[in-house]
Nucleic acid binder design. Sequence first.
RNA 1: AGGCCCGUAGCUCAGUUGGUCCAGAGCGCUUCCUUGACACGGAAGAGGUCGAUGGUUCGAAUCCAUUCGGGCCUACCA
Length: 922
Amino acid sequence: MPHELPKAYEPGAIEARWAEHWVREKLFSVATPGAGETRPVFTLLLPPPNVTGRLHMGHMLNQTQMDIIVRWHRMRGFITLWLPGTDHAGIATQMMVEKQLEKEGKKRRELGREKFVERVWEWKREYGGAILDQMKRLGASVDWDREYFTMDENLSHAVREVFVRLYEEGLIYRGNYIVNWCPWHETAISDLEVKHEEVAGKLWEIRYPVVGSSEFITVATTRPETMLGDTAIAVNAKDERYTHLHGKKVLLPLMKREIPIITDDLAQPEFGTGAVKVTPAHDPNDFQAGLRHNLPQINVMDEHAHMNQNAGAYAGLDRFAARKRVLHDLQEQGLLAAEKDYTLSLGKCDRCGTVVEPRLSLQWFIKIKPLADRAKRAVESGEITIVPENFRQIYLNWMTNIYDWCISRQLWWGHRIPAWTCAGCKEVMVAREAPAKCAKCGSAQLEQVADVLDTWFSSGLLPFTTLGWPEKTRDLDVFYPNTLMITGFDILFFWLARMIMFGCHFMQGHQQDPAIKKASGEAEKKDDSVPFRHVYIHALVRDAERQKMSKTKGNVIDPLHIIERFGTDATRFTLAAMAAPGTDIAFNESRTEGYRAFANKIWNAARFMFMNVDRIEPGLRPGDGRGVRPCMGIAGFSTQTLEDRWILSRFNRVTADVNDALGTYRFHEAANRIYDFFWGEFCDWYLELVKPRLNFEEGADRSAARIACVNLVNLFDAALRLLHPVMPFISEEIWQTIYEGKAPAKSIALTAYPQADEKQFDLGAETEMAILQDLIVSVRNLRAELKVEPKVKVPIEVFAHEPQIRSMIEHNQGAVERLAGAEKITFVENSLAKVAGARGTARFDVHVVYERKIDAAAECERLKKELEKLERGMGSGQRQLGNEQFLAKAPANVVESLRKQQAELAIMREKTLSKMQELGCS
RNA sequence: AGGCCCGUAGCUCAGUUGGUCCAGAGCGCUUCCUUGACACGGAAGAGGUCGAUGGUUCGAAUCCAUUCGGGCCUACCA
């Protein structure tokens, strides 16, 4: 084992090398298991990043968590499929290419649809893979052989199939409805793509003259320009102020059109004047009211939100210019009754920020209720579990109050709707392939509907379309339902909910291969139509000040920049260690810096190991290669010394904790356990304790050193495997180095994950070790207080409360001398409690023999503090023990441990008091 | 309008079903140490009664209510 490793760990080159190795060797490619497969299966779909995407912290967190879970499963013997791909991202990509064209002075419409789409494809081929390349560098252990793109021919075929089926089932319909319209993108967008913002606006009150009377009705509006399309005034039937006007008409100002006064619950007496203008073509509520009263729908705007010919004198004006003009004209005519400050919630396009205009237009919709009901049940019944649990409720609420989904977009880039219109009879035909002639009139003059589908339509199908649907494939039998979905809450409704709806609907009746289902630990009766069995929702990554990262704020932290400085492993570790389920992550660079130090610590521990093994047992490799095959605990570990028994026990406990934490997505707990074990136990104590065995005298018996080396290598090998899912690169590098190119597997990623062996738990060793550590720390502490020169060894006196403790300390005398800087240990027969400057616990007293007088005042101060603490503890404990209710109701083990604790506190208090007396503290 | 989350050391955060957690970690801070794995290191230490109030309980950072402060999501109120 070469130990000419650099002194400091340099992640850059090492990480790049392994990332490339993993891809080149196709280590994570999964062949479809044949019939008779009995291994468990784990399937995870990568939420497809947009082709326009660049890796940001959100991706990094998402991918880190997925990769940890995926590597963990793979190492536990699951057939593990992690499926990568990219999303065509309709609006985003079209915009990107339009901007590019703009720079060339070209416009989309001039180019024409066909040429434009070809341009987008070119762009996609050129730049669309950027984010996946970044993923490769991160070491994401996905199956690159199965990479997909949402507009691949097979996936597009599945999209058409789904559309046609839904249409045939009556779940897709087309109609004129009010939709959210983005005038900038010139397309309809779904409710979810609208962001509401509270803004300080105005509420204008306008007077409409009642026909045949000198009266006016005053209405209030935030969008006065829409009055040009008013087709009625509504008042509430119960509102007595207006009873006398029922059935009358008003003259619509500016347009000089007579419109009726209707009674409808749309008008609420408490609001404003209680009368409301009705504009069916420009407001969803008014639209509904219009249907109830058979009112005409007058659309006064075009697709750019400019006023059209229906707006009379205002035609051609932009909507906001028209608003100004309308207000001005009303004012002039004395019809503007008031202008009041008003905070309104303004809908803006999620992507461009343009104020969304509710607009009447011909669109395609999915009748969502039947799909949503089924999707709701899937979560309610526990077929799909969601972690953290609060998202479950959010999901269910949303599914309950859901509206039909507008799926058509007036874009060019995307899956074109498989519907054709007959030029002759206007018949609309939905079909899998272009029909030759009109089904109704026989005309061959057919034109495909121009609209494309909402991007989320196709991504909602991915759990089954990526596995070959609509064909009945073996992949579907094996990998559907997916095991898990890890994603952010921001696309809970956009994507997650849609996948569940589509999955449950189209995979109804599907059955996973029973043998695989059983092996994977799923109950036989579980429904297999769901797209995935578990969902983990991860948090948002914020900046160090907890602010949401955004380009406009300029506080975006570039993960690649962080990686460059600290390494991928350290960055991953940061995200894992900070990812407590349900809480956002305030990304803090200083943490990453700390975890780079951790990587360095591991690196140097490895150097230390190599240095010794090379000297003592060259060619030594871990045990019998058990690391590749599953085994409990650590094989071939000798437990002759206290530190060996102790570290083996600790390793097994940590292993149990880490496995447990990963199983419940407590990434932070897994990371922290590993960190504390590796640094705080393995490096700080174990390595220090084995050093004497390794540093044997020239010519002396080296058998103890040999055993120590074997232990060291076996332990290190196991610890690297434990670490690997979180820090794949450094663990791979050191692991490969241990085997010097003769590794039993192509990668540590293909070895077995450690499993705890209860037989290797050793409570006795842990207790003894704790006492030994206490003793050593006490002596160090005394030395510091006595200001003993670091290099000076001091004699110490020890009083052990029990013979076993004395014998344990005797056995480990060398360790105490070395680690505490003691040169001679004298065991005394009586308590040292009264000796000034002695320390003690309920197990032992220790005293450093040193001529320098301790600072009595400072010592008194310290003792006083300690006494206070002890008495506080005793006080509350005694209160409880004196409480009959407590004795009666608290569990026996709690009472027992409290008694024990109290007894120890009492001893400590006695010692402290007598010491204070001795020192003459006041 | 409805719903959700957070408020624990100077800073950033842990603390799973209430009990040995009246409390931990990292960074920062103080003192000391370049001892052949590591100064991206080692040793010792200071520092918080868990936003506030009230309640439930034998027992609460942990459950409930109210309140203050911060953040988020959903919604067709003119």
